[in-house]
């Protein structure tokens, strides 16, 4: 079999060749059990909880609802891409700083969701934050510290922008 016909997945900038027996599985299952990327979590497997949220090209999706075969040739970004060189992104740091983490099971999906949200809305209101994360269930925190983390991170993003503007 030549390289051209062998299916592959592009995940966090790395090309993974996969056996075609995995093409019929959910992308979440393939990420976890074939590629060993356990950061995306399975809590409902029907797109209700957001624990498996990933970026699929430009779209935020639940990876449990994507067929692996449909992910071939797409750019996939998982939680593992948020701190590639080990230094935390603003939103990860904010989660740590304001106590937005308890059991942590929903945390990866929330972080992927929030990173994507803040890219489109750098200065959200509290209600906008709550709406943006309403597809991600958390059972431990009551969301208060998570909303606070988004506030903090959005200010951080704002600060970065201001610096850029100043440079302009």
């Amino acid at each position: 079999m030549s390289d051209i016909t062998e299916p592959h997945l592009m995940v966090n900038g790395t090309k993974f060749t996969i056996d075609d027996s995995w093409l019929g599985e959910s992308l979440l299952y393939t990420l976890r059990e074939q590629l060993g990327l356990y950061g995306s979590k399975n809590a409902c497997e029907q797109g209700e909880c957001g624990s498996c949220s990933i970026m699929f090209d430009e779209a935020l999706v639940c990876s449990c609802l994507v067929l692996t075969g449909n992910a071939v040739g797409r750019e996939i970004q998982t939680i593992e891409s948020l701190a590639p060189d080990g230094s935390l992104s603003d939103i990860q740091q904010a989660f740590v700083d304001v106590g937005a983490i308890q059991c942590g099971f929903c945390t990866p999906g929330l972080l992927v969701t929030i990173k994507n949200f803040l890219e489109s809305n750098a200065e959200p209101t509290d209600l906008e934050i709550r709406e943006a994360i309403s597809g991600n269930l958390c059972r431990c925190t009551g969301y208060g510290r998570i909303v606070e983390a988004v506030r903090v991170a959005s200010k951080a993003s704002e600060g970065t922008e201001e610096t850029l503007n100043d440079n302009d």
């Binding site: 990327l37 356990y38 950061g39 995306s40 998982t78 939680i79 593992e80 948020l82 701190a83 935390l88 990860q92 989660f95 740590v96 700083d97 304001v98 106590g99 983490i101 942590g104 945390t107 990866p108 972080l111 510290r145 606070e148």
Partner: peptide, 26 residues
């Protein structure tokens, strides 16, 4: 509402599992 830099009992010390939990490595 922020993790403290002080230590001991009574401060908002950082969870030891915070970093693994935000990086998906926990």
């Amino acid at each position: 509402h922020k993790v403290a830099t002080d230590s001991g009992v009574g401060v908002s010390a950082q969870r030891p599992d915070a970093i693994p939990k935000v990086t998906g490595k926990f």
